[in-house]
Structures are given as structure tokens and as C-alpha cells.
Write a protein that binds this DNA or RNA. Structure first.
Lengths: 235, 235
DNA sequence: ACAAAAGTGTTCGTTCTACACCCATGC
DNA sequence: GCATGGGTGTAGAACGAACACTTTTGT
């Protein structure tokens, strides 16, 4: 199976930046590395690509191993290729970021990896170039969420508008005007109001909404500037 | 240097999607593959990553080999990892797209690779999954150019507004209103009007403009929706 | 004098932003 | 009855889209 002669073959790993949102804060799922080097240091969950796997399959496998979840939002972020990024042996890492509903996770946690959720604002130091990966993932997610309704992936089936707003505010580390926010969100037509209220957050209670899944997938690509009718072109 | 035991090492290549614009049409620089398999078929320019190289360095090297150009706009597109994408041996490809000033190229062409420019709309069949890479690169470029002034990378030092408009129209395969287009472009403040005119395209002649390089790098990230003042957040 | 492309302004509708009060409820 | 967070409306500014005529010059 080795046929291109004189070329160097190297290890290829996937690393997953796993985002969650607990209703108040953005969080990241990290593991405590179980083997040297950097044993016991915090790290992204990762794994080497196997002979018959694509990177996507490998990333989904790694995510499944840690969280027990399938069909998670997963997007290729970038490849990292510094020749010395892994001190043991040259390894190219392809980073993926995942958005999961943190509540679905909590019930299925695998203890094998000593995984823990950390506040995005208050993370431990990470091994290798994982810090850089997280920074890039954050940037990419901010970018993406400004244009596409991707953050719903972090929410449970039913959620309230104040929760949604807290989610956006967490990501952008700022506050938004709630009148303008809810108007904008509702004007997308993606949300379906429920009759039930969430009474956790306040005495009055906030109405639950559900995502209109059909409109969500149809309208996932949307919004722009610079070009007259940009939506047309950005399929 | 082999220390992670039991893992498979594989080849990693970079492939470059090289865009150019000749004043009228979008073009792609392809090479005729000089070795089996698929010898003589058209292909993207690529190469295997070398032991001490990052992917970025490898992509720049490959681009330099073909075009003689350095300091070219180059952006990582995505990794392609189908286990059988290269029939010879498993290879992961990291695709990069490059934007070059086609006029700078023409003087330095290397004949070694039998390279040729093809109209983007009228391309030959490509080997492996290169077609898919090109499609994705086109999509990404459309997306990016709708938000950021990246297309200037394709133009020579001096260019006219009608040329610029033709460039945008080529990418989006549509026509724009020239009054709105020039107003929008000029309102960015990125262009500096020259006294000289280009008389090629018309009797009246069109004024040349140059890019204000400082403002260009400062304002490269810009424009949005969904979030009140998105520019603030998308650094 | 005419053909061909360059250049420029206005109006209208939509969207964005800033801003303040009432409502429902549990204690 | 009051404290807490939920929910809603409006006015002014900025932006985006549609649209047509004049200018320059080479032949």
C-alpha cells in the first residue's frame, strides 16, 4: 500500500473543541490527558485517524467516545501543522468544533477521560497548541453565529427568549437590547411559541419556544452586505 | 522519531486552487499531471508536505514552484480525507486557495508543469476530488468576498472601477447596477483615485484607482447582520 | 455626428437603533 | 404591596434598491 516513494508519512489526529451552554455561561468540555507527555494536563479530546476513516468520521467517533452523543453539530475548523506541535512525534491535527446541548451530555458522561466542563472565560492552560485552536474556534463561532442561526444547536428542545439572549450575550461578551433582540429573532420566523412557560428564571415566567426545524435547515444560510442581494449567492 | 505505537501514518498533501482574473473572466490555473495515475489529466497543483514544513509553508512552496510568486494571498480551505481519494495510496489533502494577479504570473510561467489558465465556467474534468475542492473554493470565495474586500488581491496595482465591477460580476455570475456598485465601493474609503486613465476599455477612458493598503489591512474584517454592531465582534 | 462606455443623484422603502413603561407572579 | 424579570411599541436615522441622463472621445 506504500506506493509514492520517498515521501514522509505522518500521524494525523482530530481534536474537538466542544462547546456547551448551561443557560448562563459558555462552556468547553476538556479532558485530563491520561498518558505522557503532559499527563494530567488539560487537553481537548482527540484521537488519531484510523485507516478506513474520513476525518469527519474520526471526529464523530471521538465525540461519541467522550459524550455518548451522535448527530451532533460538527464543523471542520482548520488544520494545525507546526512540525513540533506534538513533542512526541510529528502529528498534524485537524480541529473540529462541536456544539452540543449540555443537558443531553450530563446524563451520559464517560468518566474514563476525566472530562470536565470549564467556563470559557476561565479555562486552565491547555497542552500543545490547543489554546490556539480554542481561540480560533471561538472566533469562527462568533463569525458564524452573526450570520447564521447556528447557536440553536446549543439549546435544548424548548428554550425561552431570555435564555437565547443570554446565549448570544455570552458568546459576544456584551449585552443586547432585549426589545431589539427579540424582535430580530422572532422576525426570522424560526421560532414557534409554546403555551408552556419556564418558571425557573422569574416569577412571571418566560414562554418556551421551539425551533421550526424545517425553516431552520432551509434558512441556515442567510444575511449579508457588500453585495446587493447576497443571500442569493452564498448558498 | 516513531513513538506513538500502533497508529497509522499517512501521506499529507497540499493542493492549491489558484484563482486569477484577466480583466474579463475568472480563471483557474491547472496543471497537466506528469505522472501516473491519471497522467496527462488536468489537476490542481499540489505536493506532499515535507518533514520540517508547516502546511502553510508547503502551500507557499507549491505555489512558488508553479508561479514564481511569493507573498500571495493564500487561505486554508479544508482538508479532504476520503480513504480512497487517491487510488495509489491513502493521502489526506489540505486544500488552499490562492488569489493572484494574473499579469504578474504571465511573465514568470514555468513550463515544467504544463500549466494553463482555464475559464472557471469552462473547466476540464479534474482528477480525484479536485472538482469538489474547486466548487468549495468558489463557494468560500463568494462568501468571503461578500463580506470582505478580498478580491483586490486579484487585481493589478492600478485598476478601474468598471474592471472591479466586472470582477465581482464574474464571481457572482450576475450583473450589478453600476451606480450603486461604485457608490458602495467608494464609500469604503479603500480606493485612491489616480489622475491617469485607462483608455483600453472605452474612448472616454476610466480613471485608475489604487488600493489604500493601510486602510485595506485595517478594514479587512468588516460588515454584517443578525448582531447589532457585528463588526465589533468579528475581529 | 454618432457610437460606446464612464460617471453621477434622487427618491422611496426597509431596516436599525435607541429608548421606557406595563405585566404577571411569588414572596 | 413590592420586587423581579418578561414582554411590548415608536420615532428618527441610516442604509439599500431602483432608476436615466449627461459626459467624453475616437472614428
Amino acid at each position: 500500500m506504500i506506493k509514492y516513494i520517498g515521501q514522509t508519512r505522518i500521524l494525523v489526529a482530530v481534536d474537538c473543541i466542544i462547546f456547551g451552554f448551561d443557560g448562563f455561561d459558555f462552556k468547553l468540555l476538556l479532558i485530563q490527558r491520561g498518558f505522557a507527555p503532559e499527563k494530567k494536563k488539560w487537553s481537548l479530546m482527540g484521537g488519531f485517524i484510523q485507516p478506513e476513516e474520513t476525518l469527519e468520521v474520526a471526529a464523530n467517533r471521538v465525540l461519541m467516545q467522550l459524550t455518548g452523543l451522535k448527530d451532533v453539530y460538527l464543523e471542520q475548523l482548520q488544520s494545525f501543522s507546526g512540525p513540533d506541535r506534538d513533542p512526541v512525534e510529528r502529528t498534524i491535527a485537524v480541529a473540529y468544533f462541536a456544539l452540543i446541548d449540555i443537558h443531553k451530555y450530563e446524563k451520559q458522561i464517560s468518566h474514563e477521560y476525566h472530562a470536565e466542563w470549564f467556563l470559557l472565560k476561565d479555562m486552565p492552560q491547555l497542552i500543545f497548541d490547543h489554546q490556539e485552536m480554542v481561540e480560533l474556534a471561538k472566533k469562527r463561532l462568533r463569525y458564524k453565529a452573526a450570520l447564521h442561526p447556528v447557536l440553536f444547536e446549543l439549546l435544548p428542545d424548548k428554550f425561552t427568549i431570555p435564555q437565547l439572549q443570554a446565549l448570544y450575550e455570552g458568546l459576544y461578551e456584551t449585552e443586547f437590547d432585549k426589545r431589539n433582540f427579540s424582535r430580530k429573532i422572532l422576525s426570522t420566523g424560526l421560532l414557534v411559541k409554546q403555551n408552556e412557560k419556564d418558571k425557573e428564571g422569574s416569577r412571571k415566567g418566560a414562554f418556551y419556544y421551539k425551533l421550526d426545524k424545517r425553516k431552520y435547515s432551509e434558512n441556515f444560510q442567510a444575511f449579508l452586505k457588500f453585495i446587493p442581494n447576497p443571500d442569493k449567492f452564498l448558498v
